[in-house]
Design a protein around this nucleic acid. Structure first.
Lengths: 202, 202
DNA sequence: ACCTCGATATGACACAGTGTCATCTCTATA
DNA sequence: TATAGAGATGACACTGTGTCATATCGAGGT
């Protein structure tokens, strides 16, 4: 977490800093990003950066958490709008993410092409160290269980794990392959369809 | 690829170097690994390293390719032994990977917890820039298509994509969560089972 | 034995980025 | 106006990278 001084900063200075950081993390992935670039862009001296953040990662994960928080609430909305149909909701969500504006897309690209477990974890659980089950239970309640071929909570949990693995991987393919919007969406739909019908004929 | 001089090296010197590199990449992930450590351990001067490799990544991907090549042939064997049952083969394969010896496990751990797209790609296709379909077709021929609920090559391709997404993610969970062998295996079996039966009741 | 030339080895060096710290500045309050 | 605490600043030490001029080696020719 950023230090208190960061939050005490006047709004415009804080915004400038956030923009500079976002710009750098949209330019290159975390491990290639440099504090030097950020402070040069934000026009603050080196020492100040360390007044506000622990280090590069601190700044990065602050930004990431903001992004993820907003995606999360967006996803919950989407799920509600689709009456708990998790599959339709995922497709709509996937679609909306790959339609983001340029700088965000670039940021996401660097994210997904360099998805360390630490980053993935931010998606899986809120940064506030809340229990991972918290989020799962919240989502689970919103899902329409009718027609779902799962026999208990455990199977539902693993179903969600599978869906998120597949979704992540589709993002990676989209960003790596420079797939068009349509290609990416069709691939994702095909895979969701396969998940629904299962791999074995009965 | 390493430079010619690397392959011209006397066997023992080359082995020492490979061991030192492996040790470093088992200690920390690629982005944290340092050439300085490798040359200190291998007792070669700094300039020599650059005589053999382009840079850190060059050495890393050389090692990675070796690993992956051996895993690949191991997987093909496993698939054959299971008479083309892709699901049983995956489970047996998964099991064998998480049973590797310590240094390899540590190397894999750093790999999966920092799975950049560039690394993932090495798994997906051979480094030799061969067409990605090459490998897929080879595996596809070995798979027993009886009872498989796929209607064409395209669906089969996406089925394989899903299986590999899920498998990758299970490796990540295993290495991140410090799950026991049994826990990890059970989780994986559950997910494969779910994939087989599908998410929708019919 | 000696020379030569291409291949290889070596470590000093310039450079880039990190994180720290002593010191300076600002502002609110007694 | 004095003072304390919060914040700002940039010089500095340190670590690691990649390069390059120079040294060394070894096989083949004379």
């Amino acid at each position: 977490m950023p230090k208190i001084t960061f939050f005490n900063l006047p709004d415009d200075k804080r915004k400038t800093l956030i923009c500079a950081a976002k710009k750098e993390f949209a330019r290159v992935p975390l491990y290639q990003a440099s504090i030097s670039n950020i402070i040069k862009d934000a026009k603050i001296p080196r020492g100040s950066f360390y007044q506000y953040f622990e280090d590069k990662e601190d700044a990065f994960f602050f930004l990431l958490n903001n992004h993820v928080a907003s995606y999360k609430s967006h996803f919950v909305d989407t799920l509600k709008n689709n009456n708990g149909d998790i599959f339709e909701a995922m497709i709509e969500f996937y679609q909306s993410i790959i339609s983001e504006e340029k700088e965000n897309l670039q940021f996401l690209r660097n994210l997904f092409l360099n998805m360390t477990h630490r980053i993935e974890n931010v998606f899986a659980r809120s940064f506030g160290e809340t229990d991972l089950n918290e989020d799962f239970k919240k989502i689970s309640k919103l899902i329409n269980h009718e027609n779902l071929n799962v026999k208990d909570e455990n199977e539902l949990f693993h179903m969600m794990q599978i869906i998120s693995s597949v979704t992540f991987h589709n993002f990676v393919k989209k960003f790596a392959g420079e797939l068009s919007f349509e290609e990416a969406l069709n691939n994702y739909k095909t895979e969701i369809h396969l998940l629904k019908k299962g791999f074995l004929s009965r």
